[in-house]
Each structure stands twice: as structure tokens, then as C-alpha cells.
Design a protein around this nucleic acid. Structure first.
Lengths: 115, 115
DNA sequence: TTAATATATAATTATTTGCTTATATATTAG
DNA sequence: CTAATATATAAGCAAATAATTATATATTAA
């Protein structure tokens, strides 16, 4: 694979972006499946605006895409990002996040009634 | 290779550490060869104490070792670090730092006179 | 011993960061 | 339309960060 044309400063900024526990966890979860904000809220002990602000940073860096579907805005990783290829090696060093995905699968916040 | 037993928080801290242009450059240079502070000074536009402080952070995180040899203290990467394996994939996305190594090879600050 | 060099530490400061609460906007349901 | 829900934005604040200058410590050379 060719070396990408990213500057050292861009790479440092990318690492700084992932150098936050919340954002790294979000990215790890999005690697498994897209999530909306209310789903992420199930997993983190911070306020909804705080989650939105982390997502905005990820989006501003082009690492994450958003897509509105009705009431919800779904976030997913953007494989077009020049440094996307770094995500996998990084996540390989991190414990599995399937438990977090389990949590939101079970609580299912986007299904408000079981009728 | 087995997945290492590092927490997501430790990984985030590691990425935050490398998420700084100066420190990422230092690590990239140390990947090529050990350096002392006065050599690194040739390459950066910041004060000597600032460089020492970056090195201390890297050392506190166990990413870097130091070894005094006479007047100089040489810094090198510590391959024992649990996340050492991440350094290569990261540096693959960064332009080569051989030019910086060239600079210190040429200025040769540890050789004060040619006699 | 003294002077020079290499490096570390301390104190200070401006900036950035991550959070909070309050509020605004957009969508859906009734 | 109105109420409820999902999300974003704004304002404010405390803590962390990266730099600076000043000073201390360690080593070498004379």
C-alpha cells in the first residue's frame, strides 16, 4: 500500500482526536455499526450535548458521516478519510466493544413502544 | 499476534500523547535513531525546556527510555511499551523524517570542535 | 576550583478542552 | 396546531496543555 500524503500535523491532529476516551469508544462502536445520538447516550455517562459535541469534532475532521433518517441522525465512519486505515490497527489494541453494542441493542432507544 | 490487554483509556492516553506535532515528530525521529536533547533542539523552533518537557511526558508514559552518556542524555524508543506496535502503522502515514535526521547529522551538536 | 555546556525543574501564562446548563431547531404523533 | 422527542448550538467554567523565562543540577574542560 502506498504511503498517504498526509502531513505530520494532520496525523497528530487525527491522533489527538482519537486521544479521548469517549471519542475513541464512539469510533470503536461505529466500526461495528452506525449509531444515533440517543443510542450512544445509553453507553456514556455524559450529557447529550457533550456527545453531540464529540460527534461534531469527529465530523469536522471528516472521520464520521451523518445521515438523518426521520427523527434520528445516524452517524457512521467515513472510509474516505485519508487516515481511516489507521483505525483498525488502533482498535486491535483495544478490548472489544461488543458489550456496548449489546447495551444499545437491548435498550433499543429508537423503538419507543413495543406495540 | 495476540490482542494486547490495554484498556481503551490507556490507548486513548497513548494517542493523546502522540497527538501533538512535536511529540509525534520526536517519536518518528527516535524510530530512526536515538537522539539527545541538543540534537532535537536543532530541529524544533521551541525552547529547550519545552523539548525536555515533551520528553518527560513520553518517558512518564514508558514510551521512551533515557541513558546518560557523559554530558548528554540520549533518548530512544522503548520497545517494551505495550502499545509500541502502534508506532509503525502510525508512522507509515507520515512523511519521512530523514530530512530532520539529516539536519542533526550535519550540524552535529555533540561535536563542539573539529580539532 | 571555575567556567562552560547539557539538561531538568519550577513558576507563570495564554490557549484549548471537555463538560455543564439553557435554549433553539427539526421531526413526528396526536 | 400542539406536545413530545431527537439533536444541535450557545454560553460559561474548571481543568489540562504547551509554551515561556528563570533557575537548579550534573558533567566536562581548563
Amino acid at each position: 500500500m502506498l504511503q498517504s500524503t498526509v502531513t505530520i500535523e494532520q496525523t497528530a491532529n487525527f491522533l489527538k482526536l482519537l486521544g479521548d476516551k469517549t471519542r475513541l469508544t464512539i469510533v470503536g462502536m461505529l466500526k461495528q455499526r452506525e449509531c444515533c445520538v440517543c443510542e450512544l447516550q445509553e453507553v456514556f455517562d455524559i450529557s447529550q450535548p457533550s456527545i453531540s459535541q464529540h460527534l461534531r469534532k469527529l465530523k469536522d475532521a471528516g472521520l464520521v458521516k451523518e445521515e438523518r433518517r426521520g427523527q434520528w441522525i445516524y452517524y457512521s465512519l467515513n472510509p474516505e478519510n485519508e487516515l481511516y486505515g489507521l483505525i483498525d490497527p488502533i482498535l486491535q489494541h483495544v478490548p472489544d466493544l461488543k458489550d456496548k453494542i449489546e447495551i444499545i441493542n437491548k435498550s433499543n432507544p429508537t423503538l419507543r413502544c413495543g406495540c
